[in-house]
Design a protein around this nucleic acid. Structure first.
Lengths: 209, 209
DNA sequence: TATTTCGGAGTGGTCAGACCACTCTTATGT
DNA sequence: ACATAAGAGTGGTCTGACCACTCCGAAATA
């Protein structure tokens, strides 16, 4: 009855493409069927297939090569980010939700990373931080941490959220923050790590009402 | 010269739509020009305009009402997250990673929920659990918790992971586990909550190596 | 006069088919 | 053996058609 009950063809196509990828265990660089082939197999007009493909192309999930075909791509959100940034309005609740989840992910990451990271690695990272420009420092440091934790899924979820956060409102990075964090990790001081993180995020939450 | 130098029509349309929104200071709920109108004004085929619109619709930036028009929408990243996640998860899906992230999400959820849930609500939920069949109990209970926390994004992420977990290897539900959990929440005993959760997941992790 | 009904105008949803531009393979000719 | 040209396959774009839905106002009705 309601509008939500009707699924558009291009959405169905999207679903089927996902199915196809799953079924054939495709991964980065693999080729998808041609637009005409998909059109025929899914019993949809080519224009509908294209609507679906263009949509996930914009998301950065596939790559299209004129005269060759459509290929799966490693997810790189950069193209989306700029677009989103223009549209993303200062919705305080959304921002806070993003930050809240982000804080949570990073908190867990820090707790886990302190158990596996070596003093030597911390020293090296410290040097990197001092050399690095402030730009993208947050992404750089936590990317390192998340990789150390060796949970790809966790890393990817964080990447996803982080990109949205960076797009909507830059976290203010500060070398000292990360250096302080490193020291606490070295001391395996979980309690203060939690405190420091909490303080940092407290500054960034948007005060609603 | 390279492939990147060529901008597709639908991308140009996208740019122009952004322009239009900026120029006319549109915000949530405002109406965009019709597809035919855009097509004419931008000198592009309607199908190209549609490719652009479908793409940003998938991103969740606009909403389309059959017979009425296309409207700007408050941006909520959730729909994208779901789609992206399917593609992202394609690569890393070991059970333990899933469970680890799941445990983490639920842990944070429980910590937060104990601060906002009332004794009365706990009692009601307890009744529900006793009546409920064991099937889907896990999903039911935590869905309730996550909604109480009032973070839609968190809920969505958990839903996603949960679906994968349920699909790949059923968590063994046990009424007593949830009743125990409820008691600890009522007592606001964070430490034991963490312990209980940890024990529960410990049983489910697959022993590697 | 007040109310209901109906149909047209505008809009999104979908399709079919055409043609162009590009890439790669292969057959052809030197 | 090599260079070249032709063809097949693919994405990029356009045109035009028809359907389904929403809305609103004019006409028919009470």
């Amino acid at each position: 009855m309601t509008n939500s009950s009707k699924i558009k063809v291009y959405q169905e196509v999207l679903e089927q493409i996902r199915f196809y990828i799953e079924k054939h265990q495709l991964s980065e660089g693999d080729k998808l069927p041609s637009e005409r082939e998909l059109s025929e197999q899914l019993n949809a007009a080519r224009s509908s297939v294209r609507e679906a493909l263009r949509a996930i192309e914009l998301l950065g999930l596939i790559e299209t090569k004129h005269g060759e075909g459509t290929f799966l791509k490693t997810y790189r959100p950069y193209q989306t980010v700029e677009l989103l940034a223009t549209f993303v309005l200062r919705e305080s609740t959304t921002k806070n939700e993003l930050l809240e989840v982000m804080e949570m992910l990073e908190h867990q990451c820090l707790i886990k990373v302190q158990e596996v990271i070596t003093d030597n690695e911390i020293d090296i990272l410290e040097q990197e931080i001092l050399m690095h420009e402030e730009e993208h420092l947050h992404t750089y440091v936590f990317n390192y941490f998340f990789e150390k934790v060796k949970n790809q899924l966790l890393l990817k979820v964080w990447h996803l959220i982080n990109n949205f956060v960076q797009a909507s409102h830059e976290l203010t990075p500060d070398q000292n923050y990360y250096l302080h964090l490193l020291k606490l990790i070295k001391d395996k001081n979980s309690v203060e790590i939690s405190g420091l993180l909490k303080d940092f995020y407290q500054q960034n939450y948007v005060n609603a009402r």
